[in-house]
């Protein structure tokens, strides 16, 4: 059995679902953020697989942009999470319930 690009697209879909359910189900801000990164990598895998299948380089070029943006997102995200953690000594989003209504 040959592994075609379709398999990679399917794997990416699975990764995306894993990431999305991780974000919705887990309560730790760090783990939730990690789940977002999994979702971004699902998109990256789809870009590369589809680009390879279609024989165009646009997919791989897109991945470079996404990786840079994801790195910037990590910088901002971790800074915010550390700020929250320093104040409350917890990274659980259940403890962040000051704003509601």
């Amino acid at each position: 059995m040959t592994v075609t690009a379709g398999w990679y697209l399917a794997l990416a879909a699975v990764l995306f679902v894993v990431g999305a359910s991780g974000l919705l189900l887990r309560r730790n801000a760090l783990v939730m953020f990690m789940s977002v990164e999994i979702m971004l990598n699902a998109a990256n895998l789809s870009f590369v697989a589809a680009g390879r299948q279609l024989g165009v380089l646009d997919g791989q070029a897109a991945v470079f942009f996404v990786m840079v943006v994801a790195a910037a997102e990590v910088v901002v995200g971790l800074a915010i999470i550390v700020t929250v953690f320093r104040r409350r000594a917890t990274a659980s989003v259940d403890d962040l319930a000051g704003l509601k209504g």
């Binding site: 990256n44 789809s46 897109a62």
Partner: peptide
């Protein structure tokens, strides 16, 4: 989360 959903949508449109 929304950005990741958007990006995966773009990847599928590209595919």
């Amino acid at each position: 989360f929304a950005s990741a959903v958007f990006l995966y949508g773009v990847a599928l449109v590209f595919a």
